[in-house]
Simulated scan of single mutants.
Amino acid sequence: MVRCAGFSHCKLALVFAVLMDLLGGTALLMGVFAPLEIRGRDFGDLLVYTGALLVLASLAGWVLWYSGNIDGLTAKKELGRVGGAVDLLARTLSRKFHAYRNQR
Rank of each mutant, 00 (worst) to 15 (best):
A13H: 12
L14K: 12
L14W: 11
V18W: 03
V18C: 10
L19Q: 06
D21K: 05
D21T: 12
L23P: 04
G24Q: 06
G25V: 04
V32Y: 02
V32T: 05
P35D: 01
P35G: 02
P35V: 02
L36Q: 08
E37W: 03
G40T: 09
D42K: 15
F43D: 02
G44M: 07
G44H: 06
L46Y: 11
L54Y: 01
V55N: 00
A57Q: 02
A57C: 08
S58T: 01
L59M: 11
G61V: 02
W62E: 04
V63M: 13
V63R: 10
L64G: 03
W65I: 00
W65D: 00
Y66W: 13
Y66K: 13
S67R: 13
S67F: 15
S67G: 07
N69T: 10
D71K: 10
G72L: 10
G72H: 11
L73G: 07
L73Q: 09
K77L: 13
K77T: 15
E78W: 09
E78A: 15
E78K: 15
G80C: 06
G80V: 06
R81E: 03
R81Q: 06
V82M: 08
G83F: 12
G84C: 05
V86N: 08
V86P: 14
L89Q: 11
L89C: 12
A90E: 14
L93I: 09
K96Q: 10
F97T: 08
H98K: 13
Y100D: 07
Y100T: 03
Q103H: 14
